[in-house]
Design a protein around this nucleic acid. Structure first.
Lengths: 126, 126
DNA sequence: AGGTAAGTTTGATGTGCGTCAAACAATATG
DNA sequence: CATATTGTTTGACGCACATCAAACTTACCT
C-alpha cells in the first residue's frame, strides 16, 4: 500500500469528470447559503475549499477525520445544493471547489467577507 | 381605543429601559450569526431592523403578521443571543436594534454585504 | 381596582438535521 | 477475476427547531 497521500491535481489538469447536479448561479438563494454555513463543520469545509480544489472525503486533508465518511458526504451534498461548491466526479474521487465566481457575481463581497470573518474567529472543528 | 400605530421613538429619546442579556461583542461567534440568519423569517427581520429601532412583536410593522407572537418572540431571542440584535425593555414594549457597531468591529463588512446581498435576492417572507 | 395590552415562558407537535452504521455502486489494483 | 478503495444511499436514532396555544408577568389605562 502506498502511504503517501494521493496527489492533488491542479485544476487545469482535470478536463474529465462529470459535474454533479447543482443550482444555476442565478438560483442561488442567500438564505440557503447562510443556512448551509451555519454549521461548524460546513463552515470549516468552506474555509478549506477556499484554498483550492480538494478531495472531498479524504478525511485527513479536510480536517474532519472524526466524522464518518457518510456524514462528510452529507455535508458535501448540502453545500453543493446550496450552490456553494461544485463537485466533479473523476474515477472514484470527487473534486470539490468553491463556486467563487458565481457567488461573487450573485452576492458581491460575501465570500471574501466570510473568509476574513472566519480568520479572526477561528472556531475549532468539533 | 387609539387605532393609530404606536409611535416609533427616535433612538436618542430612549434613555430608559433595561437592556436584555446579550453576548459581549468579543464573544459573538460567526457560526451562530450565520445559523441565526439561515432562516427566512430571521433574515427578513434582520433586514427590517437595519432600518432602525422598532417594536419587536408589533406584527404589522415587522411584516410577520402571519406568525404567532410567541414565535416572533422566539426569533427575537435567537437573534439577540447570537449577538445580532440588542433589545431594551421599555414599559411593555421591546425596542430592538441591530448591533451594527459590534458586528462591524468583529466581522468587518459582513452586515453591509448581507444587506446588499439581500437586496438583489429579496425572498418573500413565509 | 379591574381590565386590557405586550411579551415571555412553557408545553406540545411535527419536521428537519447531524450522526453513525450497514449496504450498495463504481472504480482502481493485484 | 478477485479484492480493495472511494464515495453515495438508506435506515435508524436522538436532538434541535419552527410553530402554535395557553398560562403567566408586567405595565398601561380608565
Amino acid at each position: 500500500m502506498n502511504d503517501a497521500e494521493p496527489l492533488k491535481r491542479p485544476e487545469n489538469e482535470i478536463g474529465d469528470g462529470e459535474l454533479l447536479e447543482q443550482p444555476d448561479a442565478a438560483d442561488i438563494e442567500l438564505v440557503k447559503v447562510l443556512h448551509a454555513l451555519g454549521d461548524p463543520t460546513r463552515l470549516h469545509l468552506f474555509r478549506v475549499y477556499a484554498d483550492g480544489e480538494r478531495y472531498s472525503c479524504s478525511s485527513e486533508r479536510l480536517g474532519v477525520g472524526h466524522l464518518h465518511k457518510s456524514t462528510v458526504s452529507h455535508h458535501m451534498r448540502i453545500m453543493r445544493e446550496a450552490g456553494i461548491t461544485a463537485t466533479r466526479a473523476v474515477g472514484r474521487n470527487r473534486y470539490v471547489r468553491l463556486r467563487r465566481a458565481d457567488l461573487d457575481a450573485r452576492f458581491p463581497g460575501l465570500v471574501e467577507t466570510l473568509l476574513r470573518a472566519y480568520e479572526g474567529n477561528a472556531p475549532q472543528v468539533p
